[in-house]
Amino acid sequence: MLPGFFKFIYELFLSSPQPPQTRPIFWNEIFPTVGLVNIALSLLFMAIFYYLINHILPIAFFKKAGHWAIFLFLNAALNFWFALQYCDGKEVEQNSYVWSFCTVNAIYAAIFYILFSFLFRRWSRGASTTPFKF
């Protein structure tokens, strides 16, 4: 179920993993793990921004769209790095496919972060309209 989902979403942007011999490890281990970590990190970053900094802490002066964007990039970068490390840990050679995958993972990190931001921000006290109100 989970591997299928992540295979689906990663391969929206990527071809099947190359070289072909790495497909099982991508499909069964890298995609689900990196994907789950991506979701978890994005949730974490969202929670830190909306709930730790802009809800629990008494001084909430880090709520501008720019601040939000910093978190977005941090999240993307961290997920890029994690994907790279994880592939390395799984002894997948760093070929162009791995780099593409890391890039796509970073893009998904941004997407998840944005998605979670708009899903959950309404309960944040200080940032429920960050980055913008609609």
């Binding site: 591997p3 299928g4 295979k7």
Partner: peptide, 11 residues
């Protein structure tokens, strides 16, 4: 959509 993709995976 999420649920749908999960259940339809060829796994």
């Amino acid at each position: 959509l999420l649920v749908f993709t999960f259940s339809c995976s060829p796994d």
